[in-house]
């Protein structure tokens, strides 16, 4: 092996070693960055690390031995599918992808005779030769491979006692209509009676934007903000929603730690902004017990608020939630 070749080998190894923690960091979502928020940067870094490894390889013009290349490629594929790909894919899909990868890598190693020989020669040497290096690697292989597999078998056989996996539907299909305080509310057509603009007319969804960030407490408070303020009083006072849903409506209230599923996070774009105002009205009025089976009504700590609040209070707390988070309800129009 020439000096040049050894250098190239170590350069590649170094790049891959550098890449590994980055991959782990990117996948783990820990570190100073919140998971998701900076994922573009993370993925970019990982891509950069992997490509720099390949770049060094190309520049030096000398590839790693096939026997090292193949498992490395396999590991990189595995990390890619298992860790970097978000949301995580199910195990069956992972197994399928990795099966394809294995076949591809095998093909890549065995496509030509020299390539196959380069790949298999070290294995053959390890198996049959009797010089010191071959012997040492043989003993190591004969101990490590069966040892690892036996350990894996032991791990697999040990009884595991994890939490059962129960898949819950977060936003189940709403009923067509509900009866709240002896009045029928048709969810398709009902409107929030407190979407009232300065001119006293119904405020179309989106038009309330001008009130976002406004002061609902002091100065000349427009009608809409007065309703928002009263909704806030319901949220923090009458009903006490903040005990679970949090002072910032982010589902991190003082009692949220004790509940599972955790309270809804209205500050997340996946909740109230994806829902119609009437859907939220149904959830607030009827609470956990009215959920369908796939949404786990038995575990929801959401009270049926019709028992504690008036219809008007419920509509007001809903406009407060949209105002506070800066989202608009979903509309079909």
């Amino acid at each position: 092996m020439s000096k040049f070749k050894i250098k190239a080998f170590f350069a590649q190894l170094l790049a891959l070693i550098l890449a590994a923690p980055m991959i782990a960091w990117a996948g783990g979502g820990g570190g100073p960055f919140d998971a998701g928020t900076f994922s573009a940067i993370k993925v970019g870094l990982v891509v950069f690390a992997i490509f720099s490894a390949w770049l060094i390889k190309d520049k030096m013009g000398l590839p790693l031995p096939k026997l090292i290349q193949a498992p490395l490629l396999w590991i990189i594929c595995y990390i890619g599918f298992r860790v970097i790909l978000q949301p995580p894919i199910p195990f069956s899909l992972l197994a399928m992808y990795m099966g394809v990868c294995t076949v591809c890598i095998f093909l890549y190693c065995s496509l030509t005779r020299p390539s196959w020989e380069e790949f298999s020669h070290p294995i053959a040497v390890m198996l049959r030769e009797d010089h010191a290096t071959a012997k040492m690697s043989r003993y190591a292989t004969f101990l490590i491979i069966p040892g690892l597999i036996a350990a894996q078998t032991y791990n697999q056989m040990l009884p595991k006692f994890g939490e059962p996996i129960e898949l819950r539907t977060v936003h189940p299909a709403p009923p067509a209509s509900i009866n709240v305080h002896k009045k029928l509310v048709t969810l398709q057509t009902a409107e929030n009676p407190f979407r009232i603009g300065d001119d006293g007319n119904y405020l179309k969804v989106g038009d309330e934007q001008k009130y976002f960030g406004g002061n609902a407490w002091t100065g000349d408070v427009p009608k809409f903000l007065q309703e928002v303020q009263q909704g806030g009083v319901v949220f923090f006072g009458t009903a006490g929603c903040f005990f679970c849903h949090g002072d910032n409506l982010d589902g991190k209230g003082p009692f949220s730690f004790a509940f599972n599923p955790i309270p809804a996070n209205f500050a997340d774009p996946g909740t109230i902004s994806q829902l119609q105002e009437t859907f939220v009205f149904w959830r607030v009025a009827k609470g956990g017990p009215d959920l369908s089976r796939e949404a786990f009504p038995w575990a929801s700590a959401m009270p049926p608020w019709e028992k504690h609040l008036t219809t008007n209070e419920i509509w007001k707390v809903i406009i407060f939630e949209y105002w506070h988070t800066g989202f608009f309800p979903r509309t079909w129009g």
């Binding site: 998971a35 998701g36 928020t37 994922s39 573009a40 993370k42 993925v43 990982v46 891509v47 992997i50 490509f51 594929c77 890619g80 970097i84 790909l85 978000q86 949301p87 997340d268 774009p269 996946g270 902004s273 800066g326 989202f327």
Partner: peptide, 19 residues
């Protein structure tokens, strides 16, 4: 593989980044 990763990695949490 990397391109797929990039697309998925960006597209899914992407929504959360906006707001």
């Amino acid at each position: 593989v990397i391109a797929t990763t990039l697309v998925f990695g960006l597209a899914i949490p992407g929504q959360a980044q906006v707001f």
